[in-house]
Amino acid sequence: MMKILVAVKRVVDYAVKIRVKADKSAVETSNVKMSMNPFCEIALEEALRIREAGAASEVVAVSIGPAQCTETLRTALAMGADRAVHVDAGAAPVYPLSVAKILRAIVEEEKPGLLILGKQAIDDDCNQTGQMVAGLLRWPQGTFASKVVLDKEKQVATVEREVDGGLETISIDLPAVITTDLRLNQPRYATLPNIMKAKSKTIKKISPADLKVELRSDIEVVQVTEPPQRKAGAIVSSVDELIHRLKDEARVL
């Protein structure tokens, strides 16, 4: 039966109010709560549900980044992933093209029937990695999925996608890449027994070099700044005053 590979990213927790470093080099990430990217939680949840429905035999979680990624993988294992792979890429940022090449190498090794990822990470908001691995592998892609139905016999996935004008439905042959949108599912919490159980599951550590992927980048971050702040305007006292000011002052009515 097929295996599902899920990529999970460690990011600044979504509830943290982020701060830009004084030297404008990046957003402050030291002494800040880090968590699994919320879209990746949805990706993992979907993989677990597919396995629980009997359409997959194993869910493997992979994370690429510094040593602390093992914490994120431990969470994935506690949620229910069977095992994990940590690609230790050191502290330097790894851009989506390199991430995609690393994932391609792991796919070639693990040979999953599905690769599921979040549609984007809430730190760099790139929304690229899933599409890029799919392109490298020449696999079909179902991005921004809000519903996934697998046909085990035909080896086909029907994917409902959130697009600008509504919902699009496509059908893709397996193996395929799916990226998840918010509406797909509500991820579970790891229970205490499962957190305990996760401690005995394995996290295999490898390096990009082991996968014969050279980390290079054709993008350079020049600076990170605060966005311009909006000033609070006037409080109006009535609907009449509001209409008057929108008409005569702002001239938008």
Partner: peptide, 23 residues
């Protein structure tokens, strides 16, 4: 960066071996 562009452009960029820049 519509759902069309976000779906297609990164895929073609990977095939062309360049890093796309989003948004």
């Amino acid at each position: 960066s519509s759902s069309f562009g976000k779906n297609i452009l990164p895929r073609s960029a990977a095939i062309l071996d360049v890093s796309p820049i989003t948004d």
